[in-house]
């Protein structure tokens, strides 16, 4: 009970800074995912349009390599290029977001029944109309679930970005570890979990809304 009272007091005292850490975290995560989506979704679609196996393989392999670099190492690699702070963190997380987004978009477009495409073609849809009105809507559930998974991952990975000065909830955890403050560690962790759950929940709703029967 006493712990709970202390914890409430901790919140009363610290809420402006907790909110700031949370906001930094949300900002870094969202910007990374949005940038990732802006590049990976059109790229994923483009890859379904080209015949060259080599380009496909290269693209997937490169994004796959980004994915396999340990987070902390990728962040470290970013520093000589981009310095410290949010910028390198966003770039690193952006690179992480590419593969799942790319893969889901590609798979989504590929999953569209060739018969459906054939009939759309046969009754006079132009290539762009086919893409916008048939293929993308049909691939949307895949794209959305890619976006959802990626967002949840990125929110989780963004905690480590605190070591390069990007702030965020990881900053609370590291500070808490540094001088043995369990409230800080707990709050940083739980806020990141809550943020990931909320993002998952909201995007789940969106996913259901846009999905056809």
């Amino acid at each position: 009970m006493e712990v709970l009272m202390d914890y409430i007091e901790f919140w009363q005292e610290r809420y402006p800074s907790i909110l700031e850490y949370t906001w930094q975290h949300l900002f870094v995560s969202l910007v990374s995912v949005i940038l990732g989506a802006v590049l990976a979704i059109p790229l994923g679609i483009y890859l379904t349009r080209i015949k060259s196996k080599a380009i496909k393989n290269i693209t997937f392999n490169v994004t796959n390599i980004f994915q396999t670099i340990p987070t902390i190492a990728l962040l470290a690699l970013m520093i000589p290029l981009l310095g410290i702070g949010m910028k390198p963190a966003i770039v690193a997380l952006f690179l992480y977001s590419l593969l799942p987004l790319l893969r889901n978009t590609f798979a989504g477009i590929q999953s569209v029944d060739p018969e459906v495409i054939e009939s759309a073609k046969g009754i006079g849809y132009s290539p762009i109309q086919r893409l916008m009105q048939i293929e993308i809507p049909l691939a949307f559930p895949y794209i959305m679930s890619g976006l959802r998974i990626t967002t949840v991952y990125i929110i989780s990975w963004a905690t480590i970005a605190a070591v390069i000065g990007a702030g965020g909830l990881g900053g609370m955890v590291i500070a808490g570890l540094g001088f043995n403050d369990k409230f800080l560690i707990f709050t940083g962790t739980i806020m990141a979990v809550i943020m990931a759950l909320i993002a998952d929940f909201l995007m789940g709703i969106l996913e259901k809304k846009v999905a056809y029967k």
Partner: peptide
């Protein structure tokens, strides 16, 4: 004000970010 790894703190000064 930002918190970071100690080594990066010095790098930040060197690269004129801090």
């Amino acid at each position: 004000a930002r918190g970071l790894q100690i080594e990066l703190m010095y790098e930040g000064v060197e690269s004129d970010e801090l």
